[in-house]
Design a protein around this nucleic acid. Sequence first.
DNA 1: AATGATTTCAACCGCAAACAA
DNA 2: ATTGTTTGCGGTTGAAATCAT
Length: 249
Amino acid sequence: MGKSPGCSKEGLDRGAWTALEDQKLKDYIKTHGEGKWRNIPKEAGLKRCGKSCRLRWLNYLRPDIKRGNITLDEDDLIIRLHKLLGNRWSLIAGRLPGRTDNEIKNYWNTTLGKKLKAEQSKHSNSNLKKKTKTNPPKSTMVSVAPQPVEAENPDTSEAPPATSADKNMLNNVAITSQEDGSGNFAMDFDVGDLLMSDISDSEFWKLCHQFDNGIEEGGNNGTGSENLSYSEETRKEWVADGCYHYHRS
DNA sequence: AATGATTTCAACCGCAAACAA
DNA sequence: ATTGTTTGCGGTTGAAATCAT
């Protein structure tokens, strides 16, 4: 397994991209398409490594990038997806049309991470005070157990058709949740165990849906965000992007 | 207005998976 | 099956912007 060529070769430009470099890269990809990143710098006349070109394109130059502030809906969705997936930024970004993994990662690290930390410490403080009276918290858990897939779930009916492997996997996945003493909805399982990278869109949305049901059955997550309903505009956007199933009205 | 502290975010780095020969 | 190459990901860095004094 070779090490990536890296961007440390001498003679290559580093740091912020200039408007001219952006234009060269855009022009090149417009006519030749994405891919073959290693060749792009040479062929586009850029003194950058392929990796840097790829990053610049994916995070900044792509025409479908949505720039501007993260909306409240997106904010809420990121929090929920992060609960479900952890730091799988690319997976999370894949459910937010026009947003990049880098952007979401930055947003999490600068805004949401702190916000949740603050809320957690608030909770843990109040829990400390209550602790003598309350029972030990029941853990919130996701269990993996044999369970038949429900016939036709209206909320998931628009998901792309599952492959047989998908279906097989879904047959073995059931998500249950329990409210813990703090009212937090924390997950006691490692999503990695489910090999999320292998999970198709259809599976993903079923997981999301089951996750949602778990929250509804088990109470809120302590943030009060579970009652949040998304705007019609956002819903339409997600429908257009195949992300409808995460809409909750 | 000056300056130091803090925050933001684009870009880089290293690793590992995926792919090709 | 093995080895080398390419691509994609998540963590981290540091320059620029913003805020506080």
